[in-house]
Design a protein around this nucleic acid. Structure first.
Lengths: 200, 200
DNA sequence: GATAAAAATTCAACTAGTTTAATAAATCAA
DNA sequence: TTGATTTATTAAACTAGTTGAATTTTTATC
């Protein structure tokens, strides 16, 4: 199992000795997903948190009219899952699937509990992780309240320029909360203004 | 200082002995705010996290056109603050003010750091707190993507029935991301349909 | 309790974003 | 490579939500 990326990610916030590292690694399970494979579907219970080593996932819902709404993307060094389902062991509202062939490391609910007990430093690690995720989400909420779709698109491509290259426009639209048709219009307008096509 | 509410709130997630309790209390500072008083204004650095003992606060931005957008409300047993400003010690984008006379307990950045060092159990406490806040925010994002204004209003009043009683419609509108005029139209429509006025 | 100020309502004109549908372009599977 | 499927584009009709402006109701203040 190639966990170097995860260990360096964790090392940014807490320091583990070799024994703690070994224990931690023993609690992880690797998994690979082919493009379009599902990690979780609506109605299932989410049994693990997933750290992405390579690839790209999306977390989304499908509403009553069949429209997809993307709640978050996950790329390398992100954690994804349905935290609510994971914690309460109730059926998830979300789908999670792979937009590219993807490699992850999973930690199950039981193993995470064990980890918190045996290496309390991980409480700190996840405290910081959730803290940062909370801040990022609050900014997204604030932007959704304040900005037009055009501004949100502009912000998205400046904030995640490399991510946009990996996504279809349909997916970007489902994340921004607009239709693909309207995103296409925004892009046309932008190209005409700046003379710069957004993708080549 | 009347900290019973805060101690019981914390006792829901971690158990403190009397020494730890004493230390924790020594790191807190009480504060009272008159209605309309500011706890934080845009451009200031947020120096503390605030636990609400009594009253109601709102966290909001004012956009370039002068419109207010409410990112969150805080009532009894909620923590409020600008976490990003607090952690990075940079100027805040947010205003926080009191919608009612309000009593809070504050913990400063330095004291919180000290608390984490001396009582690591608080890492766990705040890990759980941010985890829950993250889930709530993700649900809000998902709803904002999926639902019309009418559905969001319906959801707001069923989710926070007691809170709505304490707010003006203008504030509810600023939280939902719609104009007060449109909210008024939604309420009229609702009253006509259900025959039930939302407030008496 | 009178007066001023803020909040809520109503209506009509408007616009940001949607819908439908048809076509073109890109991606996928064999 | 081809045909099939998905994605992106364009245009026209449409609608959810906004804007502005006038009126009423509620709340605050002295």
């Amino acid at each position: 199992m190639e966990a170097t990326l995860l260990l360096s990610h964790i090392g940014r916030h807490i320091q583990l000795d070799s024994e703690e590292t070994a224990l931690f690694l023993s609690l992880l399970q690797p998994k690979t997903l082919k493009r379009k494979a599902f990690l979780l579907t609506q109605g299932e219970i989410c049994h693990a948190e997933h750290f992405i080593l390579k690839g790209c996932l999306r977390v989304y819902t499908i509403d009553d009219n069949g429209f997809e709404h993307i709640v978050m993307f996950g790329v390398e060094e992100w954690w994804v899952g349905d935290l609510y389902s994971f914690l309460t062991q109730t059926p998830s509202q979300y789908f999670i699937d792979a937009l590219e062939d993807t490699e992850i490391l999973q930690i199950s609910r039981q193993n995470l509990d064990k980890l918190y007990q045996q290496v309390p430093k991980f409480e700190r690690f996840f405290r910081i992780l959730f803290q940062n995720a909370f801040i990022a989400q609050q900014q997204r909420i604030q932007q959704n309240l304040s900005n037009t779709a055009e501004m949100r698109y502009q912000d998205f491509i400046t904030r995640y320029p490399q991510l946009e290259q990996r996504l279809s426009q349909k997916q970007v639209a489902a994340y921004l909360g607009i239709t693909p048709v309207f995103l296409s219009m925004l892009r046309k307008k932008r190209t005409q203004k700046t003379g710069k096509p957004s993708k080549q």
